[in-house]
Measured scan of single mutants.
Amino acid sequence: GLEHMADEEKLPPGWEKRMSRSSGRVYYFNHITNASQWERPSG
């Protein structure tokens, strides 16, 4: 619920959580730099 939404908002600017269609794993994508990574971004 609300706790999940608050957790999402802690991601650094530009980052969003996405799911890989090929593997079904969650990864993180930065739409500003077009960077993507499996680890949760910090800072």
Rank of each mutant, 00 (worst) to 15 (best):
G1T: 14
G1Q: 12
G1N: 11
L2K: 13
L2P: 12
L2Y: 13
L2F: 13
E3S: 12
E3I: 11
E3Q: 13
H4N: 14
H4A: 13
H4W: 12
H4K: 06
H4Y: 11
M5H: 10
M5E: 13
M5R: 06
M5C: 14
M5L: 13
M5D: 14
M5P: 13
A6G: 10
A6H: 11
A6P: 12
D7K: 07
D7L: 10
D7H: 09
D7C: 14
E8R: 07
E8Q: 08
E8H: 10
E9V: 07
E9D: 10
E9W: 08
E9T: 08
E9F: 07
E9S: 08
K10V: 11
K10D: 13
K10H: 10
K10M: 11
K10F: 10
K10S: 11
K10L: 13
L11D: 10
L11T: 02
L11Y: 03
L11Q: 04
L11I: 04
L11W: 02
P12V: 01
P12A: 03
P13C: 13
P13T: 07
P13I: 07
P13Y: 13
G14M: 04
G14H: 08
G14Y: 07
G14F: 07
G14R: 02
W15N: 00
W15V: 01
W15T: 01
W15S: 01
W15Q: 00
W15K: 02
E16T: 07
K17M: 09
K17N: 02
K17L: 08
K17Q: 08
K17E: 07
K17R: 10
K17P: 04
R18G: 02
R18N: 02
R18E: 03
R18S: 03
R18T: 03
R18M: 05
R18H: 06
R18F: 05
R18K: 08
M19E: 10
M19L: 14
M19F: 15
M19N: 08
M19A: 09
R21S: 15
R21Y: 15
S22H: 15
S22W: 11
S22V: 14
S22R: 14
S22I: 12
S23F: 08
S23C: 06
S23P: 06
G24A: 06
G24I: 03
G24Y: 05
G24R: 07
G24M: 06
G24K: 08
G24Q: 07
R25N: 05
R25F: 05
R25E: 04
R25L: 08
R25V: 06
V26Y: 13
V26S: 05
V26R: 03
V26F: 14
V26H: 08
V26Q: 05
V26T: 08
Y27W: 05
Y27F: 12
Y27H: 02
Y27K: 00
Y27N: 00
Y27A: 00
Y27Q: 00
Y28E: 00
Y28H: 00
Y28F: 08
Y28S: 00
Y28L: 00
F29E: 01
F29I: 04
F29P: 00
F29Q: 01
F29H: 08
N30E: 01
N30F: 03
N30I: 02
N30Q: 02
H31D: 03
I32D: 07
I32Q: 08
I32T: 08
I32S: 06
I32K: 08
I32V: 09
I32P: 02
T33L: 06
T33K: 03
T33E: 04
T33Q: 03
N34P: 00
N34M: 12
N34Q: 14
N34A: 07
N34D: 03
A35M: 13
A35F: 10
A35Q: 14
A35W: 13
A35K: 15
A35N: 07
S36Q: 08
S36Y: 11
S36K: 12
Q37R: 04
Q37W: 02
W38R: 05
W38I: 06
W38F: 08
W38Q: 04
E39A: 09
E39Y: 07
E39H: 14
E39I: 07
E39G: 07
E39R: 07
E39F: 08
R40V: 06
R40G: 01
R40W: 07
R40Y: 08
R40K: 10
R40P: 08
P41T: 00
P41R: 01
P41K: 02
S42I: 11
G43V: 13
G43P: 11
G43M: 14
G43Q: 10
G43S: 13
